[in-house]
Design a protein around this nucleic acid. Structure first.
Lengths: 264, 264
DNA sequence: GGCAATTTTTGACGAAATGTCAAATTTGAC
DNA sequence: GTCAAATTTGACATTTCGTCAAAAATTGCC
């Protein structure tokens, strides 16, 4: 009984540990920096064992992406629950984006990676479909906010413009802005002092342009930020912590003989 | 004389040919798909010769990026020259973005690559600074349009919002939108029928939100599109053609502003 | 506890692909 | 035609990948 549980837990825990180690590698070198060899060494096993969990490097990356998207959706849904007015709700989700990028930077990086690297093509259709589903869920849950805004009379879209179009705009503006912020060497030199503030202002300008009520009010907005930011950060921390490595709770001392057995 | 010229031209032409071959590889496999061996084989030389031009793969990618940005800037400047009204001007540059993505898709892909891959870190500071400069030039030339809009009374920004902030917004919206369009598997399924149209509408909504005059007018906008699109496409074609692999048209505008390989 | 069946791990292997460099070849000037 | 300089070559040492049969460990059963 004891042995069984120990082994099974070890294997299950390993998958999570692989992902965590891989995350660290991705952080400072992109998806190609994931070295199966190095992962194995850090876990105290050999490469073959890693391939026992993931058929290839790309699959690790897509697993990371899966985890990242699930975390993000959880954060977004929490965000949407924090406000009542439709415009406040959508603004809170926007803030959740910021918190996501700040508090889970690796997840954000991974999400970008699967979009641009050739990782996507190399993975099984099942995994890709899975990610597509996540994306679609996220979109639809957010577009409900916009639907509600229309139903309640806060927003009335011009002909030919659908709620998803608005969502796409906010997505572009926020996502694009963050992306530029992270990848453009010196935004400050170009004249952008506070890119986050700028993104928010631009989002609000867009919503004002669509005449989404109530109109942008700097003070009200600032109050909203103050009210929800702390909660969002806390939630993010909680989400991340739930899958972190507990060094003492698992098998740290289980196989001490491994460390002395260095090949060659 | 003949011999000398022949050899020298061969070497100079080879650099361009390497870039063109590499572009094709990047197109369907990302930057890692550039295979030095395959490039050499296609040019009828051996790998060593390739390394004679570029110290490593990453340097090829950054050269591609350099070319891409120069092309984009040329297209943007042409675009800005096509209209007079400040809002029309900025809209025309927006259209130029679309044309860039459509007519020079490889260049767009490469520009994204250097942002997300670890290519950036692996290259010499000189190359990086060069790209930064290009970026800054592009920004400043565009922000002049906004300066002019303010000077002429078409636009008056709220306190604390600078012209560059607006530019950053348009950049985010357009770049982000294109990015999502290209990398999100099935935007149509999410409800976005025509992402280009949506991006334009959202840009206009943002500018309306900032109260940039004249306000958005669907008909006027459509006329603008009809007027400039064809010219932009033609210009793009011309830009691309000037560096294509034509064995007979070596002489044209090709003025290689930087000579090759520096060790880092 | 002991043994057989099953699962997991190992590490050697073959296949790319990279970047280097001394030697061979080509070029161009006299 | 000769020779110095420039250019090209291809073998070398490395790194990393993913596979797989054999070894080791674990589990189930008596």
């Amino acid at each position: 009984m004891t042995t069984l549980t120990a082994k099974q837990r070890e294997i299950r825990g390993r998958e999570r540990r692989i992902l965590n180690v891989a995350t660290a590698m991705v952080r400072d070198g992109g998806s190609m920096a994931i070295r199966m060899d190095a992962i194995a060494k850090q876990l105290g096993v050999t490469r073959g064992t890693i391939y026992n969990h993931f058929p290839h490097r790309e699959d690790i990356v897509l697993s990371l992406a899966d985890r990242a998207i699930r975390r993000r959706i959880e954060l977004f849904q929490f965000a949407a629950s924090l406000s009542v007015g439709s415009r406040d709700q959508i603004a809170t989700v926007g803030l959740a984006c910021e918190v996501y990028v700040d508090e889970m930077p690796d997840d954000f990086a991974v999400e970008q990676m699967i979009r641009h690297d050739n990782v996507w093509q190399k993975c099984s259709e099942a995994r890709r479909e899975n990610l597509r589903q996540c994306e679609a869920n996220c979109m639809s849950s957010l577009s409900h906010i916009i639907d509600r805004a229309i139903r309640q009379g806060d927003l009335s879209l011009p002909r030919r413009q659908s709620p998803v179009d608005v969502l796409f705009g906010l997505w572009s503006l926020t996502y694009g802005g963050m992306m530029i912020e992270l990848s453009s060497p010196s935004l400050a030199e170009l004249g952008i002092r506070d890119s986050r503030e700028t993104i928010r202002r631009n989002c609000n300008a867009m919503l004002d342009g669509l005449d989404w009520r109530p109109r942008y009010d700097a003070d009200a907005y600032r109050r909203l930020v103050r009210r929800v930011r702390r909660k969002l950060v806390a939630k993010a921390g909680q989400i991340v912590a739930s899958e972190a490595d507990d060094s003492h709770s698992l098998d740290s001392g289980a196989n001490p003989s491994f460390s002395s057995a260095e090949p060659n």
